[in-house]
Write a protein that binds this DNA or RNA. Structure first.
Lengths: 120, 120
DNA sequence: GCTACACTTCGTTAGTTGGCGAAGTGAGAA
DNA sequence: TTCTCACTTCGCCAACTAACGAAGTGTAGC
């Protein structure tokens, strides 16, 4: 029940859903997500922490950068089912579609060059 | 997205989950759920309203009584998938198991006789 | 060592949510 | 019609949450 509520609470915020679905096509560092969501880094970091607590997302540190990716096959059954449900249900969502387009541009940039991409 | 968030928010509260899962074995009137959850009727009514807004639950009026049941096959695809996910994932939950036992007793009583059942 | 940078944690603030009791609504009983 | 009762709506309060900027942490480069 505790774990289940962690998952549903993590999924009950639009910003977190956008961050989660942004990871569909592979891992991203925090600055990519800041560029996508246009919120303060501290805010985005906290949202990702909620997703990690629920085990929907995993964090990987590489030097100064923090990379996030969707939970994989090692995640608990409830998490895998939740991810399948979310991705299936939101496949056609308009907001997420727009995000995917912006992400395609952001992904081309290394974290180091992201400042230039923010303009687009 | 809007509908999806309505579902996840409805599912992100323990009391609502208990009410939702209580309906697994068939419809119940509000007073049954008040007996189960031991909260003020106004509180339970509000929780059920949230579940109805998300279309996870349907309401039926019969005289003075309001009966609630899980959404059926006519519900949107996202709702049906959500219900399947919730029921599967929480099948073994301890709290819900205890609720199911108490419900079995409560179900024997007509709404009119519920006051007597509350003692048990 | 020191600085620069990516990220996280902390403290504050505004808005949301869950709880209650009181008042309102509407159907059945008297 | 009037009363009773099941439920809903309203108004309030306490607890929680999302947002921010400031301060803290740790790594890479000088």
């Amino acid at each position: 029940m505790r774990e289940f509520l962690a998952i549903t609470k993590a999924l009950s915020d639009e910003t977190r859903l956008r961050a989660l679905l942004a990871l569909r096509d592979g891992e991203l560092c925090l600055c990519h997500l800041v560029g996508l969501l246009k919120l303060a880094p501290s805010t985005v970091s906290k949202h990702l922490d909620v997703l990690c607590q629920a085990r929907l997302v995993e964090r990987r540190k590489d030097g100064r950068w923090a990379y996030f990716r969707l939970a994989d096959q090692n995640a608990p059954r409830a998490v895998r089912r939740a991810l399948r449900w979310v991705v299936q249900t939101l496949a056609q969502d308009a907001t997420l579609g727009r995000d995917a387009k912006r992400l395609a541009a952001l992904r081309c940039c290394d974290p180091k060059e992201l400042a230039a991409c923010y303009k687009s």
